[in-house]
Design a protein around this nucleic acid. Sequence first.
RNA 1: GGCGCGGUGGCGAAGUGGCUAACGCCGCGGUCUGCAAAACCGUUAUGCGCCGGUUCGAAUCCGGCCCGCGCCUCCA
Length: 481
Amino acid sequence: MSIQLYNTLTGRKQKFESAEPGRVKMYVCGPTTYNYIHLGNARPLVVFDTLRRYLEYRGYEVFYVQNFTDIDDKVIKRAQEEGQEPLKVANRYIEEFFRDADALNVKRASLYPRVSEHIEDIIAAVQELLRRGYAYRAGGDVYFEVEKFPDYGRLSGRNLDEMRAGARVEVNADKRNPLDFALWKAAAPDEPAWESPWGQGRPGWHIECSTMSLKYLGSGFDIHGGGADLIFPHHENEIAQAEAQTGQPFARFWLHNGFITVKEEKMSKSKGNFFLVRDILSRFNPLAVRLYLLSTHYRSPVDFDDERLIAAEKGLERLQNTRRLLQEASDRLRRGSEETAPSQEKAAALRAQIERLKNEFVAAMDDDFNTARAIAAFYELAREINTYLHGGAALEAEVIELATATYEQLGEDVLGLLGRSQQQASAELVDSLMELIISVRQEARQRKDWATADAIRDRLKDLGIIIEDTPHGSRWKRSQG
RNA sequence: GGCGCGGUGGCGAAGUGGCUAACGCCGCGGUCUGCAAAACCGUUAUGCGCCGGUUCGAAUCCGGCCCGCGCCUCCA
């Protein structure tokens, strides 16, 4: 009954225990904010969000940090193309990021630190690396010297000799070793720059993540996640920087999700075969996209294909139907329209199934976060509940309550697949409808069509809604009783 | 060249030594239903890339081969 997670650092599943009892600290590399996110960006978002939800379900308090890379070559390039300030461009895409993430039912992280707001911290980190002899200056640049860090290559499972043999590393005369990487880059004339001990410049890519994760989570935090393409060099470099800087182990568990592929090929920006989440969401139910992403184990590749999205939509519909049927059943019970005595036998049978499937769900999730197996158990749960509801016997209130609570807990709290309930949706719809009615009435009043305006107010009053006109517009409330 | 992942029914996808190979989608048949929808039941792999081997027993372990993909370079 313990959680096992595959740790890239050790190459095997390990029992997960948080460093601090009851509290998990996790960091997931976020997007570079120069465009809408694509499906490949969405996978870690959904996967680690679900991991976070599961850990919370298992009773942990989770402190979840996700960064935004808002200073970077691509942001700068984009800004130049658009003739805008880089930070403005970044801000805009951060807003768009939240729209997509919200649609995918991704819970907000505890904190979203941005590079541009942590320049001081980064400069301090680079200074410390220089002081400790792990870094060197070359003109206005500062590089990390990989030879000085004996463990370099541990995460990605290679050593310096092997990597040099790869010979695909760009030659740079300023570097002592081709694999040395920039901690600080001198700025070109038109680029955003900050004053530093090495002149005007900006941070390298890797230093931001180690600096911000150390700042908010401290050395030895529990989980560091991201896409598998970040293992090398990004995460390798983070480890080198952080451990060289602090002399302490950096993160305890390294988790990496597999790629999204298109026709079996990796979806990537450089290949140009990527699909924006924004476009996908315009054609498919966002929660179906979420279901599709969780239907495969997080470390395996997932191929993007319309047919699979359609299948996911169908599956989702079934899962959401069960929730609706449960809602109807409890409404019926509340109205007291059940005439015969409930079947204790059938209720007991459902109770046993709920127990069994919930255990299966938890066992699957405990085993390296096997959402595919967990979802299978959830489908079975839906079927068992449907069978009971459809069985013709009188319903028993307590088992309906148990079924509803369990279904909601696994399906929404953990998997995030059910979305807003019927009740929440209705409440929101009422708000929107009232807004609509009030604006129609407002138009009538502007025309001085008092008859229509008064008729609307009177008829709403009959429905138990009171309109109050004020100098700033109209507001509404429900009448008492 | 180095390192690594994967090939399971029509399509996806679990399963890593032993009940009838989960689960979803699609198709077909049925139950229910005024109709429709929803829901439920049945049905689809004597077989898990190919060839050998180990074992009482393998999709699961070992060896070889074929095929697809990834990382080694910005990428989630």
